[in-house]
């Protein structure tokens, strides 16, 4: 590449996008199986929608109707399809197989490289799984539009937060593998917290008060409940601003912890490698 003024500032972004594109193309190899992933998502939506129909009927609870819950369920299913938790198993596998050495040679900060890799996978999921899944779900069950223009814009922001919260969480779990050489237990334990406090199966507004207070402080709500609640206009006004700020804070905390752990992990890996 010909060096030019200002080129250095652009190059990291280009490298990042190049890795992202490579990951997207790598995932294209599995496109014959996307219908299974679509089926997986649709089953989740069918089950949840049926449960809420049985529970709410034509009425409402806390002002929430069946149609609201169907939209809620579609959105949380979409988010779980594109969230970036999956890097845990990728890193775990590469660490045990020794492929991690190849990754470290690549001209990029390793966690950032992982982010590009995961975003490439998400882009693939979005194009080949999420879009057809949402179209089918919307035609079958109906989906509500965002409550307002503000809700729509805030939803996009909350989606970015969802991606970053799930990524930094996955990174922390993955880095633990450098010490424990396994991530199985951490994945299950973290998954349990996500099941309970994420709100995908039971929105936080149906929680008992004490538990809701706890859930509203934890990072898990950002990977399911928050984006859907924002879309529906259930989180609005000053609460919206506070919620998004809390999300950004969790990204910063988990990101900083991930970076610190990464520095220690690299040192450790060098020692092991001898």
């Amino acid at each position: 590449m010909v060096a030019r003024p200002g080129g250095d500032a652009v190059r990291p972004i280009r490298t990042f996008l190049a890795f992202l594109g490579t990951s997207f193309r790598k995932n294209l190899a599995y496109r014959s199986e996307v219908w299974l992933s679509i089926l997986f998502g649709l089953l989740a939506i069918v089950i949840q929608a049926a449960i809420w129909r049985a529970l709410l009927g034509d009425g409402a609870a806390e002002g929430i109707t069946v149609d609201d819950m169907v939209t809620y369920v579609i959105i949380t299913t979409v988010i779980s399809a594109v969230s970036l938790h999956r890097l845990v198993s990728d890193v775990d596998e590469r660490l045990r197989g020794g492929d991690i050495a190849v990754d470290l040679v690549k001209p990029m900060h390793y966690p950032t490289l992982q982010l590009a890799d995961q975003l490439g996978r998400s882009a693939f999921q979005l194009a080949f799984v999420v879009v057809p899944m949402v179209v089918i779900a919307a035609l079958t069950f109906g989906i509500e539009a965002p409550a307002s223009a503000t809700a729509g814009a805030a939803f996009v922001a909350s989606l970015a937060i969802a991606l970053l919260v799930s990524f930094t969480q996955g990174l922390l779990l993955a880095l633990l593998a450098f010490w424990f050489l396994t991530t199985f237990h951490f994945i299950w334990a973290n998954g349990a917290l996500l099941t309970l406090f994420g709100g995908a199966n039971l929105p936080l507004w149906f929680f008992p008060d004490a538990l809701e207070t706890v859930a509203r402080l934890l990072p898990y709500q950002f990977v399911a409940f928050v984006p859907a609640a924002i879309w529906l206009g259930e989180i609005a006004g000053s609460e919206l601003a506070w919620t998004l700020a809390l999300g950004v804070m969790w990204v910063a905390i988990q990101g900083a912890a991930g970076q610190a752990l990464w520095s220690a992990a690299v040192h450790r890996l060098t020692v092991q490698g001898g």
């Binding site: 299950w188 099941t195 199966n201 039971l202 149906f206 538990l211």
Partner: peptide, 22 residues
């Protein structure tokens, strides 16, 4: 591993219990 899986299923049960509680 057994403990971790146990926690995973306990969380699932907790969610269904919370649903029925409400």
């Amino acid at each position: 591993g057994l403990l971790a899986q146990g926690i995973g299923y306990a969380a699932e049960i907790a969610v269904i219990w919370l649903l029925l509680h409400r």
